[in-house]
Design a protein around this nucleic acid. Structure first.
Lengths: 231, 231
DNA sequence: CCGCTCATTTATCAATCTATAAATTAGAGC
DNA sequence: GCTCTAATTTATAGATTGATAAATGAGCGG
C-alpha cells in the first residue's frame, strides 16, 4: 500500500501546459455532453480535480473552451477519406454509400458527439447547420451524381439535382441517426446488434432508391419541357 | 389615435386567474422552446409583461411550471383517435399508417414540440422516453400486427414481434421526424413542399416493408425450429 | 541548496439566479 | 362612493454564476 506523503490526502503533481490542456479539453467534452452547455465551470473544475480559476489560465472564457470542444469533436473527427471513398468507382455506388454510412455512423454514434451536437443546435450555434451542409455538399451531392450515372439517368450537369433527391439521402441518413437519438438523447434501449439494424435499413433504401430517382428525374424533365414550350 | 390614460405608458388591466394562467403557460411554452429549459424566470416574466414574483403565485416553482408545459405540449396534443384509426380495417394497413403518420407529423412538426422535446431529453427528463414507448405500444405494435395479418404472416400471438420489425417502424418514423430536426433544431432550410417529401418517403417505406418483414419472420421461424430441435 | 519561473490555489467581485415576504392598488359587490 | 378581496408590484434574501487579482509553492537550472 502506498505511504501517504503527508497527512493531507492527495499529492498534487504539476503538469506541463500541453498535458493539462488535453485533460481539460477531454474533461470538458465529457462534462458538457452530460450536463449540457450551460454546465458550470466550477463543476467542471471539480470533476477535473483542479480549481475553477485554473481553467481561465488555459481558455480566456467559457465560450472559447466550447469552441475548442466543437473543434475537437466535429472538425477533428471528420475523415477526408470519406470523400475519396465516394469517388472510388471500383465499387458500385450502393456499396460505396453503404461503407460510408457504416463508418460515419460508427464515428458519430457516441454519447459525446450526439449530445453536444443537439445542445449546440438548441443553443442557436450554427455548427450543426454548417456541419450538415458539409455532409450534403461533400457526400450527398457526389453520391447522387454517381447514382444518376449508374442508373443511366441524366448527369447533374444536364439536369440539376432536385430537392427531393437530396431528401432521399437525408431520409436514410435520418433513419440511421435516429437510433443514436433514441439511445443517447431519449435514453431508450435500442437493439444490441446495431449492424443488423443498419443492414436492414440500408437494404431497404438501396432497393428503393433507383425507381424513385427514375420517377423524380422523369418529373423534372416534364417540368423542363413544359417550361421550354412556354418560352 | 388612442389617448393615453396617464402620462405613464401602459394601462395595466387585471386578469382573472384562469386567463392569466393561460397566458403564462402559453408564454412559457414559446419561451422555453426558444431559449431552452434553463431560461430564466425573470426573462419569461419580462416577455409576458408581468413581474417575476407573479409567476410564483400561479406555479409553486419553476419545475412545476415546466411540468405544466410538458402536459400541455405532449399529453394534451396526443389524439386518441390515432389508436382508433390504426384499428379501422376498412382501410389497408398501409393507408392507415400513412394517414396516422401524416397527422402525427403535422402535430409534432412545430418549433415548440420538437425543441422542448429535445431539451427535455438532454436535461435527463424521462418524458421523451415515456412518450416514445407510448408510440411504440399504442401505434407500432398494432400496426405490425395488422401488417403480419395483411401479408399472410403468423400473428404476433403465434410468433412474437421481433426487435428488427420494430426498428423498421422507428426507421421510417425517424426519417420523417428528421425533417423537423433539421428545420427547428439545426435551423436549416427544408423543402417548402413537405407533403411531397412525406409521400416520397412513405411510398418507399410501404413498397419495401412487406418483403423485409417476410424475411425477418422466416429468420425468426428458423431460429424457433432450431431451438425446438435442441430441446 | 538557492533562486526563479510559472502551474496552481485562495480570495473575492459583480452580476444573476430562484424564491419569499410585505406593500400596493385595481376593481367587484354592496 | 366605500370596502374588502385578491391580483400585482416592490423589495430583498440567499445561493450561484463567470471571471479577475493576488498569493502560493513545486520543481528545474545553476
Amino acid at each position: 500500500m502506498a505511504k501517504p506523503r503527508k497527512a493531507k490526502s492527495a499529492p498534487k503533481p504539476r503538469m506541463s501546459p500541453a498535458h493539462r490542456e488535453r485533460l481539460i479539453v477531454e474533461g470538458a467534452i465529457a462534462f458538457f455532453a452530460e450536463v449540457g452547455l450551460e454546465g458550470q465551470t466550477r463543476e467542471l473544475a471539480k470533476r477535473l480535480g483542479i480549481t475553477q480559476p485554473l481553467l481561465y489560465r488555459y481558455f480566456p472564457s467559457k465560450d472559447d473552451l466550447l469552441e475548442r470542444v466543437y473543434e475537437e469533436v466535429y472538425l477533428k473527427r471528420w475523415k477526408p477519406e470519406w470523400e475519396a471513398l465516394i469517388a472510388d468507382r471500383s465499387l458500385s455506388i450502393g456499396e460505396r454509400f453503404r461503407r460510408f454510412e457504416k463508418d460515419y455512423q460508427r464515428t458519430i454514434m457516441t454519447y459525446d458527439w450526439l449530445r453536444i451536437f443537439f445542445s449546440a443546435g438548441l443553443k442557436g450555434t450554427d455548427l450543426p447547420r454548417r456541419y450538415l451542409l458539409r455532409v450534403r455538399d461533400l457526400i450527398f451531392t457526389p453520391v447522387l451524381g454517381e447514382m444518376r450515372r449508374e442508373f443511366g439517368l441524366p448527369s447533374p450537369a444536364q439536369l440539376p439535382l432536385c430537392a427531393q433527391e437530396y431528401e432521399l439521402m437525408f431520409g436514410i441518413h435520418g433513419a440511421l441517426v435516429y437510433v443514436g437519438i433514441r439511445r443517447f438523447i431519449y435514453n431508450m434501449d435500442v437493439p444490441t446488434d446495431q449492424d443488423l439494424v443498419f443492414d436492414t435499413e440500408m437494404d431497404a433504401f438501396l432497393a428503393g432508391v433507383s425507381p424513385v430517382m427514375r420517377r423524380l428525374v422523369a418529373e423534372q424533365q416534364a417540368v423542363q419541357r413544359a417550361r421550354r414550350r412556354k418560352s
